[in-house]
Write a protein that binds this DNA or RNA. Sequence first.
DNA 1: GATAGATTTTTCCAAATAGTCAAAAAATTA
DNA 2: TAATTTTTTGACTATTTGGAAAAATCTATC
Lengths: 208, 208
Amino acid sequence: MAGGAVRTETRIQREKRERILESALEIFSEYGFRGATIDQIALASDMSKPNLLYYFRSKEDIHATLLTRLLDMWLAPLREIRAGGEPLEELRGYIARKLEMARDFPRESRLFANEILQGAPRIKPMLEGELRHLVHDKAALIQSWIDNGELAKTDPFHLIFSIWATTQHYADFDVQVQAVLGPEQSGKRRFEAAEDFLEHLFLRSLRP
Amino acid sequence: MAGGAVRTETRIQREKRERILESALEIFSEYGFRGATIDQIALASDMSKPNLLYYFRSKEDIHATLLTRLLDMWLAPLREIRAGGEPLEELRGYIARKLEMARDFPRESRLFANEILQGAPRIKPMLEGELRHLVHDKAALIQSWIDNGELAKTDPFHLIFSIWATTQHYADFDVQVQAVLGPEQSGKRRFEAAEDFLEHLFLRSLRP
DNA sequence: GATAGATTTTTCCAAATAGTCAAAAAATTA
DNA sequence: TAATTTTTTGACTATTTGGAAAAATCTATC
């Protein structure tokens, strides 16, 4: 049946693959690609290793699937910056959305951070293609706002980098943040304080 | 000879241990602790694995030695903030020093980032002790400047976090920064632009 | 309830990897 | 230079790990 119909996924397949990806996200984000083992993921998924390998051909395969899914989600907040909006409000919204992602999806943030930190062996092409393109696009938009006098003069690229850095820091370096602030301060409180701080920081420097 | 004299390190020991640490920094910072192998480090140090293990008892031991050495260096810029100095100038200097470290010691930055990202299994005590203490100390100093009206109202802790995040980003996420900016922009140029940007960003928001 | 197809388990394997040990070689000291 | 100590090597081991193969079991459908 060469080139024949691709059998549609059964319910069990969908569910198990989902379960595996969920566990894998947990494990990969905590230990990195090499630090994670298939056995760990299988255990966390409540299935045997060979069984897991029935749903994914390899460890690579699981990892690649996670990264691919992640990327769209990861870039969404940036995409949402609208040319038609009020510049300061658009950027405030962007910062808030990025910080929400760090708060609600810290494992995804760490998965991504692990990948980049190790030289992005698996997503370099995407960084140099899609990401680069999107950032240039939005940087041009920000530049146009600056040229219009709606924003203070600044470097749009480094502005974007510093928004990435500061927001993701709360997910990626969470242990450190908690160690410094002490465990008594709740996660919610930490993120509220972070949001207040970041809005002030960026908006003060962006107001024309 | 229980409790006897600790033989002083020979020249060869000093040199070889140094060579191993240098290679290990290279490898660990690129692949993380689990991703790195003793064989890789031995190869990079130009010696056999058993020979390397003659100088360090284990992989752990090498890694621990690197981290311990790193920590002092890592906190130095923060320590240098002086109560007697001019607040804005002290903070400008701090940002500049941190950015220089990201530029001149990216491998150290990545080693540290790898460790934190994986939950700081080996340096958590130090984060909760020495680091926490130092940060609280400097945060109090910054707060006193704010109370004196020498700085704008802001959260000193999140200020420090965001300085860490933005400066280290240029070391830890270098692949991504380069992918976005393109390879034509030299490292030097990138860091100059970053410094300009960060000074504006922080100083505008800190001026009373 | 027989059968084809999907799923799961049991058993296995080969490569990678951290680390050991004893003997050889080199360097240092007496 | 002989004795002693330090350094290096080669051969080896035990364990972990990613993955394969095939048999066994389950499930949906006729």
